[in-house]
Amino acid sequence: MNKPISRISSVASFSVTVFMFLVLAISIITANYQKVEDVKVNVQGVTVSKGGPYDYYDKTSSKADFARVKFDINTDLSKLFNWNTKQLFIYLMVEYDNTKNVDNKVIIWDRIIKRNGRKKFNLKKTLNKYLFRDFSLSLRDVKDANLTFVVERIPVMGFFTSRAEYSTKLDFPEIKN
């Protein structure tokens, strides 16, 4: 029982157990649910046009409606970082209904905020980063569209938490065709 090998093995198994409990404790203690106090998303306007850029995978692209959303974001996220926060993933999401009884959610813009990067920014007249179109070809019957600013906290180790921080209405223009 007192052989070096059995000693090594008991020390190893004990330290693995301690390590696991430590990780669990740290991830519970440092879970970050803080609210972002200083955030403002201002929608400048939405325009819809027919026909997007050539898409190798999606051949319907030339016939579909594409929306362009122009917005300003003004926020300070530096308070969200604690010692167990690796980065933040922020994104703008549009939720909308249409007559087809389908619930649609689309991420139109995102950004990774690194620990030692810029955490306070003021973006003006930014356009959506990803193409914004419907599952069907048309964006004509869009109603109750909402733009939501979501922040996901990605820890060094532990659990992911994500929170909607700001929400605003999005007005689509009338489309006649």
């Binding site: 619930d103 959610k105 990803y130």
Partner: peptide
């Protein structure tokens, strides 16, 4: 990977 678009049929 991350889910970027969801279209959910309500029925």
């Amino acid at each position: 990977h991350r889910v970027m678009r969801t279209h959910t049929d309500k029925e």
